[in-house]
Amino acid sequence: MDKKILESKNYSLSYKIDNKKKYYILRNINIEIFKKQKVALIGESGSGKSTFAYSLLNLIPRDEIDFCGEINFYSDKICCKKKFLLNFSDEDELNHIRGNHISIIFQDPFSALNPVFIVGKQVEEMILNHNKKISNDELHLKTKSLLKSVKLQDIDIVYKKFPHQLSGGQLQRICIATSIANIPELLIADEPTTSLDAQLRVEVLDLINSFVKKNYMSLLLITHDLNIVKDYVDYVYILYAGEILEHGHGNVLSKNPLHPYTQLLISAYPDKTKKGKLLPVIEGQMPNLTEKKFFTRCIFFNRCPKKIEKCNSLVPDFYKAGDSFVKCFLYEK
């Protein structure tokens, strides 16, 4: 088995609302990513998936959060082999890791790029930030080959364009080019296809997939759409209201979901076989994460169609069922 590159151990994070209240957005997150592995983190809006991605890069202001647990990054390239990312106080060292060892593609390419600089310069900036000795010619050549590798056409023209002059698909390709410029060990893609149409979604995912394979990178793909990513990833974690509810291999999990939440999520996909029928809906609301009382029982209790008595008073563990792990009493042995 390949080496572990990232792990979060019992990682919890809460936002401070005021002196008394906290928003417990992530609780006891245990995720492992191995070298060359492609992992998807799937969840609805507000489940905490982007917060997890930002905390991997230490992008959330410290004074706004409280956290416990660990996030460790094991790198071959950094001298010190084990780095506890959240303990970094040295901004320079953090900046060295960001973009160089761990890189991120943001959801909205329009807001991820600086509107007053041409896109070519923004790709160059990313290379230059981590390689100060590179000559101008080399820099220019590398940028153009990057733009070419993300399958942009008319590179010389695109290079000189401002973000507002390009389409969503072109901008997302520029963002991918900046993220892979330094060939990071771990690439985080935070809903990279949400703002794109179906055809572009496949193209962008294919592109990310081919880069990850070619450069032996690991991938953490964050999305709400299991159907789209199941063919691209090796392993899937299902996140709901800040807790992992199920994890397992991508194809197994999409064909045979075990947790009632995953089952509902998958059955809610519209297709022609369901024509004329109403789609199953997850009734109710996500629990209010400022109230701790919800954490003393199964977090999906109020919306679960298969709940049993025990679910209201105890928090389930992860139980192994087939090749997957499920946080549900229905699979308790």
Binding site: E44, S45, T194, H224, D225, L226, L264, L265, A268, Y269, P270, L278, L279, P280, V281, I282
Partner: peptide, 16 residues
């Protein structure tokens, strides 16, 4: 297009 899968199902049911 800007909604989660579970919300999409809810809105589709309303539209029907």
């Amino acid at each position: 297009s800007s909604l989660d899968i579970s919300l999409q199902a809810q809105i589709l049911n309303y539209l029907i």
